[in-house]
């Protein structure tokens, strides 16, 4: 079965990103397909490669990136939500005249159409958030 995952909450805020991660991992372990993970609203903060959590804490961003690497996940960050919150990749830096980028390379910035497509293409859309 094809799942799409939507995350509306940032890392270390409450538990949504953790729940989504464990759900995604469990779905993959059962042989399901993850069509896309879409990061929306404050969820875009899950994509910052500049986070440095304490060593004895989980690294939410790296953990997503590793899972994406292992399973070739498509992890999409909403562009409008990203712009508001200062989440920047090379393209956005150029377009908006910013002097730095902070997106972890396994994530990509794109539009809300990617969420709509995921909702249509996947058998189930599971939403995690506040």
């Amino acid at each position: 079965m094809k799942f799409a995952i939507q995350i509306n909450e940032g890392p270390y805020q409450h538990q949504a990103s953790d729940s989504a991660y464990h759900f995604t991992k469990a779905a993959l372990a059962k042989g399901h397909e993850i069509f896309r993970v879409f990061f929306y609203h404050d969820g875009v903060n899950n994509a910052s490669r500049l986070t440095t959590p304490p060593q004895d804490d989980r690294n939410v961003v790296e953990r997503w990136a590793e899972l994406a690497e292992q399973h070739d996940l498509d992890m999409v960050v909403c562009v409008a939500a990203a712009q508001r919150r200062g989440m920047v990749d090379d393209g956005e830096a150029k377009r908006n005249g910013k002097d730095a980028t902070n997106i972890q390379s396994r994530f990509r910035i794109s539009g809300l159409g990617q969420l709509v497509e995921a909702a249509i293409q996947a058998d189930r859309l599971v939403v995690f958030g506040d």
Partner: peptide, 18 residues
């Protein structure tokens, strides 16, 4: 979590009350 995945797969849709 595996049971959560099963519940989501068995249902015809998942509604999150956020």
């Amino acid at each position: 979590y595996a049971g959560f995945v099963d519940l989501a797969a068995e249902a015809d849709a998942v509604q999150a009350w956020l």
